[in-house]
Design a protein around this nucleic acid. Sequence first.
DNA 1: ATTGAGACCTGTCGGC
DNA 2: TGCCGACAGGTCTCAA
Length: 257
Amino acid sequence: MVQARIESVLVRRPTLRTAFPPDFAARLEGRTVTAVARRAKYLLVSVASGDTLVMHLGMSGSVRIEPGADAGDSEADPHDHVVFALSNRRLVIFNDPRRFGLMDVVATVDLGNHPTIGGLGPEPLSAEFDGYALARACAGRKITLKAALMDQRIVAGLGNIYVSEALHVARLSPHRLASTIATPAGLPRASAHRLAAAIKLVLERAIARGASLTYRGSRFQVYDREGARCRRRGCGGIVRRRTQAGRSTFYCRECQR
DNA sequence: ATTGAGACCTGTCGGC
DNA sequence: TGCCGACAGGTCTCAA
């Protein structure tokens, strides 16, 4: 998309999780894309006029590319909600069956003030995210480790699957209080360093694998493996499932403390 | 400050 | 085979 001009924007369905801004298409049409980036789970497409297209895939969203000059050229899938026709004769098609996704246009300079994007915590794979940062954010917090890692303000971009996975790699119970990985002064205990490293490892491995959306059948250590044997060498525990805040958490009682 | 429940909406899967 | 309920990767808001 970078360097290409957005020739036209076809909105087939103007409501996902929230309604699109009324001037959505007008603010993008005729603009040249200057940068494509990602922050947490938000996709950011900046255009030369100083606006940024913000997209979120929700739970079931995807983007695909097709050749074509006109938005009407794309194959009609009932869940293709937005089609961007580019000057390089490619169509960028946003598809989201469940419509939990999000589509917005905001002034690029205001991204930092955006209610959710502005408050996002550090990117987990960045150098600024480490045991120190994690301990600082968790110090004194009376929430469980699971809730802490799901909180995008503490660390950005982890979801239900990789929270379970990271806690397993770090051998930490999802039910432990977040405050226990830090000293009262907010300095990291060994567990904080372990957890930060586990988060990075789990994400790097997932990305290297292609982080396929076809998560079923993947080789997760604990996620979606209730009743199965813990994969940790020499552990032999049984993976449990418990609901926390309405979401399934998978963990091994034997090796996660 | 923190938790829990419910809402958004559709598809898929397991059980009967 | 067909129907029906349970459940799903993510936010967001409201009540307690």
